[in-house]
Simulated assay, not measured.
Amino acid sequence: MPVDRVLVNLDLNLLVTLDVLLRERNVTRAAEHLGSSQPAVSAALARLRRHFGDELLHRVGNRYELTPLATRLASRTAPALAGVRRVFDAHAEFDPSAVEREFTVVTSDYAAAVLGPIVTRLLAERAPGVRLRLQQTSPYAVDHAVDTLRAVDGIVLPHGFLADTPFTDLYEDRWVCIVARDNDAVGADLTLAQLGELPWVVLYNLPTAFAPAAQQLRMIGVEPRVEVVVDGFLPMPFLVAGTNRVALLQEHLARRIAGFAAVRVLACPFEVVPLAEAFWWHPMYRADPAHAWLRDVLTEAGRRLAAAGENHPRS
């Protein structure tokens, strides 16, 4: 394979400087962040401008703005740095008790709330030098999963959204309905008719971003009357409390938060496919011992969560 002359002549420190400059949009602040001098960062910016043939930062009044090229680069520097770190963090063997590194996992606030505490306890016990970064998922991250997975260690996501991607199954959960504790219009059981009449709190409500159970409800001919749309599961119980609204929530989360949010947890009045949560990861990690260890930790955390859920009283 021929040598890539661009990479041979490129100082990787420039990538770090570029990332900070594009985020700070200010040479002085970038220098402070990097622990460097302002002249050194100015010199690096000059080298970057020569390399790209672009100003990257241009002055508008008393501030700097990104050029169109710099705007495109800003979305690429963080994934590129993450890839470089992964290369130099790699070892033939992995000793979790001795290593210092960070794993980044993209996840919903739901999975972070119910699985995250178990994972962090396991990490604290077995790998005190490991830091876990839980990054909030988004429709964009899922729709562009190939690009997302190149920059992180993986995504915790239910089956049904990704295909042709390696995954590790974690645990199953059950969808339940929540209504306000003081909602007298709903008794001990909900009906399909009520689900069609009551106002809803829903997640995202976009063509490619939705709660799977809500999509199933639409497939059986019940169209939720959406009143509130949120970008996460944790606000839902508090937006249901004290109202006549209804929402679908995962049982592990609903049981934990029902008392705080003054909501009741009820069984769904239709047959809902269980939520099968998995950890999705890029094929480049298949033989990575550190990543294999992380997958094992997540799998064990999923087993512990499932075991704890067996003690929940069922609706």
Rank of each mutant, 00 (worst) to 15 (best):
A70D: 07
V179I: 05
L198E: 07
A241Q: 01
H51K: 13
P289F: 02
A30M: 01
V3G: 06
E271T: 10
E251N: 12
C177G: 12
L298I: 04
R264K: 05
A258Q: 10
H312S: 10
P235K: 05
A185I: 13
E223K: 12
R256W: 12
H33A: 15
D184Y: 08
L14M: 08
L170I: 09
A30N: 00
A188C: 07
R50A: 14
D143H: 12
P139E: 03
V106W: 07
P313S: 12
R256G: 15
T148S: 08
P68Y: 04
G160Q: 10
N183G: 05
T191I: 01
V106N: 04
F103T: 09
R86G: 06
E197M: 13
F270S: 01
A287K: 14
R218K: 08
P2G: 12
F210E: 14
A31G: 06
V265F: 13
R314V: 00
T299F: 08
L81Q: 05
Q250H: 14
L15Y: 02
I155K: 13
L305W: 03
L122V: 02
R49E: 14
V106F: 08
T191F: 11
G154H: 01
A308T: 01
I220V: 05
L7K: 14
F238Q: 03
E65Y: 04
A193R: 13
D19M: 09
R174K: 07
E93C: 08
G129W: 01
D182I: 00
V297L: 07
N311M: 08
M1F: 13
F167A: 15
P117T: 04
A151Y: 00
A78S: 12
T243W: 02
